[in-house]
C-alpha cells in the first residue's frame, strides 16, 4: 500500500477529487493547510499599507491506495492540479505498513 500526499491549489480540489475517484479510489482526506515553497508568500499593498501573506492557503490531499495503482493516482493528480504557474504544489508517495477499518476490523487491502 502507498500513501499519496499532495499539496495543491485550493481551486483545483474539485478537478483532482473527481479524477482520483474515477480511478476507483474510495476515500480521500483533505485538509486546509497553509505553507510556502519556492513561491514564498505574497504581498498586498492597499493604500500604502502592506499586508504580507507568508503562508499561502493550500489544500493537502491524502489518499492510501494499493501499490499497483499508486503510479496512476500520482499521474492523475499531477495532470489535474497542473496550471504551469508557480505554486502548483507537490506530491509525495510513501509506503504504508498496515491499514485497519475500525468498524469491522478488516485489514490492509480490504480496509482501504
Amino acid at each position: 500500500m502507498k500513501k499519496i500526499e499532495a499539496i495543491i491549489k485550493p481551486f483545483k480540489l474539485d478537478d483532482v477529487k473527481d479524477a482520483v475517484l474515477k480511478l476507483g479510489v474510495s476515500g480521500i482526506t483533505i485538509t486546509e493547510v497553509k505553507g510556502f515553497g519556492r513561491q514564498k508568500g505574497h504581498k498586498e499593498i492597499y493604500r500604502g499599507a502592506e499586508y504580507v501573506v507568508d503562508f499561502l492557503p493550500k489544500i493537502k490531499l491524502e489518499v492510501v491506495v494499493a501499490t499497483d495503482i499508486a503510479p496512476r493516482v500520482v499521474e492523475v493528480i499531477k495532470e489535474h492540479a497542473h496550471t504551469g504557474e508557480i505554486g502548483d504544489g507537490k506530491i509525495f508517495v510513501m509506503s504504508v505498513e498496515k491499514a485497519v477499518r475500525i468498524r469491522t476490523g478488516e485489514e490492509d487491502r480490504d480496509a482501504i
Binding site: 485550493p10 486546509e32 493547510v33 497553509k34 505574497h42 498586498e44 492597499y46 499586508y51 501573506v53 492557503p57
Partner: peptide
Amino acid sequence: RNEWKTILHRIAFY
C-alpha cells in the same frame, strides 16, 4: 469563518 478561507478571500479582493 476561518483564517484559511479569509486569506483566499482577501487575495481575491486584492
